[in-house]
């Protein structure tokens, strides 16, 4: 009967799941470190983890196994708050690490002073990915609100990357309209009127643009844009670097409560410090992140990062993450107002 076939299927499924669980628990010998990160760092940490494990063994003779968790930055922060034992977090924006301080006091409020340059060993920015030949002639933020231009960006409520997109656009509009609030809001409204799909994460938006061929321009992390081109061939897409954008600082931190409980503070700190080392910086640049110590990076890699005018989140324009979050992305904030009838 079909029923017994079904039973066999579920039995098989269960045994596969159990076998999978057993296999992954075998890998937990020696010291393990869990790095909870956001979506587009997959490739970076794959390479970096291998380099760190090798170096750490050479320095101390200890074997360290690194485990990664990737996902939308906000969702990852929530997992850690809800009990995922992350030794270190490497998220898309400082606000999400602040959330770990506020909800559960998982680390000290001064976490951003623990490592150099605001605890951001690499930076990135927001650029435009357009279709080959740039058929809609998109060069600057002003082109995004033209009629007939479709812009793909994820929902800033659910995606850390999208918040950088949004704030870069806002920053540009503030400069372009000399801080005229009504005009800035008008620009943002026009911009989001041109957004046909609001994906929940950066990778989802990339898929919509690249695979579904929807939209004329994708607002993307610089490294994500390079990765898309690398994976899909430069014959289909090209990167347009606007003259003005935002300095995106994806910060890193040791989760005090977890490392003290698990006794992994030493290796966790070594891990994050290694990001600042010549090797770490070189790997970051190779994976399309802008290194904070460019002297260690391969000059060939550095050529890919054109110098542009970058506004910082600490600029009075935004007043840091806490304020920017409250103004723009809280319930009923500026972003919600965009979708309310005038």
């Amino acid at each position: 009967m079909a029923f017994s076939a079904k039973q066999t299927f579920y039995a098989a499924l269960t045994s596969v799941l159990i076998a999978g669980g057993a296999a992954s628990s075998v890998a937990q010998a020696d010291t393990t470190l869990l790095n909870v990160s956001y979506d587009p760092t997959r490739e970076l940490y794959k390479e970096f983890n291998a380099a760190f494990a090798e170096d750490y063994k050479k320095q101390t003779g200890e074997t360290v196994t690194l485990r990664m968790s990737h996902g939308g930055s906000g969702k990852q922060a929530r997992s850690v708050i809800d009990g995922l034992e992350a030794d270190v977090v490497t998220l898309a924006l400082a606000y999400d690490i602040d959330a770990l301080v506020e909800n559960g006091g998982l680390l000290g409020a001064d976490w951003q002073n623990k490592f150099a340059s605001n605890s951001s060993p690499y930076t990135s920015t927001i650029v435009f990915l357009v279709r080959k030949g740039n058929p809609k002639a998109i060069h600057d933020w002003s082109d995004l609100t033209r009629q007939g231009v479709q812009v793909i960006t994820p929902n800033p409520k659910t995606s850390g990357g999208a918040r950088w997109n949004y704030l870069a656009a806002w920053g540009w509009a503030e400069k372009a309209y000399n801080g005229d609030d009504a005009k800035v809001r008008g620009y943002m409204r026009d911009l989001f009127n041109n957004v046909p799909v609001l994906d929940t994460g950066a990778r989802g938006a990339t898929t919509t643009f690249v695979q579904r061929e929807l939209g004329d321009v994708l607002l993307a992390w610089e490294n994500e844009a390079f990765l898309a081109i690398e994976e899909l061939g430069p014959d289909k897409f090209e990167i347009v670097v606007p003259p003005f954008s935002i300095l995106a600082e994806p910060p890193v931190a040791v989760v005090d409560k977890v490392v003290d409980k698990r006794g992994t503070r030493k290796v966790a700190e070594a891990y994050l410090n290694y990001l600042y080392s010549p090797t770490g910086q070189k790997i970051a640049a190779k994976n399309y992140y802008r290194p904070i110590s460019p002297q260690y990076a391969d000059p060939q890699d550095l050529k890919r990062f054109p110098a542009i005018d970058l506004v910082k989140i600490d600029d009075p324009l935004f007043g840091g993450w806490q304020k920017a979050q409250k103004t723009h992305f809280s319930d009923g904030g500026v972003f919600d107002q965009i979708y309310q009838p005038k």
Partner: peptide
């Protein structure tokens, strides 16, 4: 649904997505 909906507020934004958005705001009560 999240992949096929388009997720535009007041057009194709489903209630469970709104719940996720509230969670992202760390607004558990909402």
């Amino acid at each position: 649904v999240i992949f096929i909906a388009g997720n535009l507020p007041k057009v194709s934004e489903i209630a469970p997505l709104l719940i996720v958005i509230r969670l992202e705001e760390f607004n558990y009560a909402g």
